[in-house]
Design a protein around this nucleic acid. Sequence first.
RNA 1: GGUUCCGUAGUUCAAUUGGAUAGAAUGACAGAUUCCGGUUCUGUUGGUUGGGGGUUCGAGUCCCCCCGGAAUCACCA
Length: 594
Amino acid sequence: MERTIERNIIDAVKNLYDSDIDVADIQIQATRREFEGDITVVVFPLLKHSRKSPEQTAEDIGNYIVEVNPGVRFFNVVKGFLNIEISNSAWLDVFLKLRSAAPAHSFSEKGKGQTTLIEYSSPNTNKPLHLGHIRNNLLGYSLFKILTACGHRVYKTNIVNDRGIHICKSMLAWKLFAQGETPSDSGIKGDHFVGKYYIEFENAYKNEIRELTSKGMTEEEAAERSKLMAGSRELLRKWEAGDKETLDLWKRMNSWVYEGFNKTYEMLGVDFDKIYYESNTYKLGRNIVIEGLEKGIFYRKDDGSVWVNLSSDKLDEKLLLRADGTAVYMTQDLGTAVERYNDYKFDRHYYVVGNEQNYHFQVLKLILKKLGYEWANGIHHFSYGMVNLPEGKMKSREGKVVDADDLIDTMLVTAREMSEELGKLDEYSAGEKENIYYKIALGALKYFILKVDPRKNMLFNPRESIDFNGNTGPFIQYTYARIRSVLRKAETYDYSGDIKSGDIELNDKESDLIKLLRRFEGVVVEAAETLNPSLIANYTYNLAKEFNQFYHDYSILGEKETAVRTFRIALSEYTGQIIQESMGLLGIDMPERM
RNA sequence: GGUUCCGUAGUUCAAUUGGAUAGAAUGACAGAUUCCGGUUCUGUUGGUUGGGGGUUCGAGUCCCCCCGGAAUCACCA
């Protein structure tokens, strides 16, 4: 449609003004609702060719197009905007073309041949996942879906911070207090089980400090004298030295954590192609640092610690290895990056990590470049904002975190309550019902988080998210379920037959819906280019709302005219397909009924 | 203080990436509906896009200067 108009404009300018124009000067867009018409041409860029007023130019070109293009019914001019009304039969053609292209949907060729890595999730093995991780996981997974849809070859990776003093703390607490208890003994999910001992350590440590300070020590002295802290350091030392007993316990406790994480990941519907462990990559990182030191890119201070000076890039000095030779966060990330490049030879590598680490990733990329790795240019920190709650900020130190599993559970409970109240599922088995509740609960959670621009800090309100009305996941799911219901009923009606162009006259709601449907592809491409799933979310909401308006105003199954009924059912079916596909890019499942 | 990001209806978010009169949802208000209320439906209200300059046919969007908020600037991860 746009193509032919574009062609018309080039011809018009050629014939009317005897001038050749650049295709880039042609701006065609969908007409806004408030105005009459379907397609709008912005004529301002054409003025240099016409040398006339915007109104006159639009008038000239409009007349020309109406004359040569039979698909165009009429036009109107508002200021410098030429609004073109497409004939209804042309809209029907657009729909038929869209629909026939649907099964083999490919959105864009731009990603073709691109190998793209996405790192997301990145948990620590000393505590369960929380609300912040949920945003991370959902964004990472959705980016994977969107980029894949645009032709990228995408690999999902995860880096597990399974090493360090924090792990040793839970290990020590377990040795001291657990008396051999395991997750299966206690009936606690593995990651929560280990998290429990981490908290026990913190509490015991606090008590110890309080006792010591009450004897007249300062905080610093107390921290140095602390037996618990000394015990953790001792464990870390043993771990690094490869002490068998320590390593065995470490492996055992980590396996409990992973078992727990896997359940949470499964609930969220996310997965990974390859998981990296910091305990493996930190050694490679250390070698890289030492290599850089030999090349003179880094330098050693008197105490033996290794640094890089980035002050010429406004980034100050950064520590790479401690005085005792042990690795820091940056060390292992350098190792992980190099290992990943060796594994995948990626073109792009997205790190889905919260915006509190912007500085870290700036430094990481710069260091890799200084080391001479060309591929560092493909590294990109996908930085997202924090999730706040109505009660205020989340602070893990004060224990004010929303646990991921708890949150999912409350969402499930709420979904069940609300569905039971509506009572539309009474005839289904318990298993089928549970499956639907699950889809609603997760759909509500995912949609609420993904509809927000990732960069922005956001406010998560659990009650609002699961509303069946408004801009929510359940509302879109409800629209989809409604469409499916119509289609099930339609099978018992006589609506077979092809739709041919020219068969029927479309009404406004129908052509509005088609207009929106044809934008889908563009939205997906844009979401991939700007790495922004929220575009897809908000688009889908508009589509669902548009369908409901159409559904509200016109009869589908009760329609007498066979051709019209056939068309409307086909339109509903296609809308359902797009909604499902669109929400699928957000990792949200659509229930067949709800 | 340096760096990065964010400021849009009372609130939570949009705005086809530089297009027309900045839109939804929710809240509030009015009316309808009925088992009081919630629910549901209809309508109304709600904005100097933090402020000020600039760029151009045209700015919420791009540039500069202020104001406000967040993150970060560790031998934590």
